[in-house]
Amino acid sequence: MTHPPRLAEAFLASLGAHSEFRDAVLGDLAEELALRAEWDGVRAARRWYCREAIRATPYLLRDWARRLSMRDVRALAGVVLTSYVFMLMLTLTVLAVARGVLGAAGLSSALEWIAQPDRIPLAVNFAFGSVAAMVGGYIAAWLHPRAPIVGALALGVVWSLVGVTAIALLERTPNPWTYLMPFVVTMGTLTGGALRARASASWDQIQRNAG
């Protein structure tokens, strides 16, 4: 039997849809994957699965939103706030450690460079931003086990909104490329969330096998 791509399957399973709806969709995808693997080959079938996973995502998200209660909204807000604060603390800690290490190594020019974020090239900012977003997405997904991807996505959206507002208000002549940051951040949080979903799916599988 051909197994579905683990990341895509974990992603779909983590969108918070009702278990009946989710299992029906995942079951149909798995069944058709097996048929397509016989007809078109395993690689083509797995590509088809990934495409279908993307097409099914809005419907699974809509099913989650349909059942949303005030309590869920409060829980999600808590997840976003906690993971955002955690992320900020982690970023500041990394910067402080980098400064400490560079200072101890006597690299004062690099220390000055870090102290002035305006002089850091945009590509470095994007790279740092996507890594930070991935870590944030992973944390948000971990804090929101009922719908891990939704937790990560909510963090990405809020973070992006805060970022765009800050750029618009604080920078007089912002680099137009800076406005790509929300996309980078959201993709980063979603990737982090998907990695968390895959890790927890593997853990569930291990437990099922052990049981």
């Binding site: 029906a24 149909d28 995502t57 419907y59």
Partner: peptide, 26 residues
């Protein structure tokens, strides 16, 4: 789901996604 999607897609000559068919069934 799978049989319904195949039937609907074949007759309408449109490729409906699994999610669209299940949302309609729901």
């Amino acid at each position: 789901g799978l049989a319904i999607r195949r039937d609907v897609s074949a007759r309408t000559e449109r490729d409906y996604s699994v999610g669209a068919v299940y949302a309609t069934l729901q």
